[in-house]
């Protein structure tokens, strides 16, 4: 099971990003846990300045904007 953290202040793009990961995971049949992180200290701790950022299994894989769908698929397949 992969764990995802979507880092952001709770703006629309963050919600969209979290939903994109969940939807792709369902479509591919991959088990995931997606958590939205809004705490600034935690977000900055990951070195993210442009939100939303995405952390997969503890590693930053994306920052700034909604990730492209095929990028999300690559994370889930990898």
């Amino acid at each position: 099971m992969k764990t995802f953290k979507v880092l952001g202040s709770g703006c629309k793009n963050c919600v969209t990003t979290a939903k994109l990961i969940e939807d792709k995971a369902t479509a591919l049949g991959v088990a995931v846990a997606v958590e939205k992180v809004t705490d600034m200290a935690t977000i900055m701790g990951f070195g993210i300045m442009s939100t939303p950022g995405v952390v997969m299994d503890g590693k930053v894989v994306h920052a700034g904007g909604i990730p492209q769908p095929d990028k999300v698929e690559a994370w889930l397949r990898g």
Binding site: M44, G47, M49, G53, V60, G64
Partner: peptide, 9 residues
Amino acid sequence: IRMGEIAQV
């Protein structure tokens, strides 16, 4: 707040 290393994507 202390920032982690800037994430390079």
